[in-house]
Amino acid sequence: MGSDEKFDCGRRRLMAAAAAAGSVAGVAAATATLIPFVASMKPSEQAKAAGAPVEVDISRLKPGQMMTVEWRGKPVWIINRSPEMLETLKKTNAKVSDPNSERSLQPNYCKNETRSIKPGIMVAVGVCTHLGCSPTANFRKGVESGIDAEWAGGFYCPCHGSTYDLAGRVFKDKLAPDNLEIPPYKYFGDAKIIIGEETKGA
């Protein structure tokens, strides 16, 4: 009799252990089944590779003009800011939420007042830091701009109304939290810019 009871206890323990092991195995198996499906949705190698640097000729970009090129599927703006336009940055300093670009994205060599390598030429990713629309350039001044009387030129996001100054710095109390991203870029001579390649030793 006694040996029977012992045997039963042992069997119960064995069954409990088997059940526990079984459920652990089950969960593991379910997770293992999910992995290939979830992983299949990640960007392909092809998508990861599509990010080659872009060469841009800026010799014909006159002061006050702007051009847009595509880099990694995103719009990148190149703006030739006139001295007058650069002057406005002093006035907007107090009105933007991150004047020194402390929390914004830019290469170190562009973390300065104009957010650029050469003061006049600005290069920025034209993607709003709120939810990713592409803001519209509006270089007109004051009421004529249709934005407000103090407008000194800049960018207006049509999606939820965030505004940026001529250095891509976002104005206070807008939905966008950060300044426009500045991509890595370097000069190749005076007339060419390569977007997507770092400037070394700057």
């Binding site: 949705m41 990640k42 990694r72």
Partner: peptide, 27 residues
């Protein structure tokens, strides 16, 4: 699609990696 997918990146625990996974691309 651009705006709403980016909105997901703001939600706690999901973030940027989730949106890249959802798009299957960076854009």
């Amino acid at each position: 699609a651009q705006v709403i997918i980016n909105a997901f990146s703001q939600l706690p625990f999901l973030g940027q990696d989730f949106t890249i996974w959802l798009r299957g691309d960076y854009v």
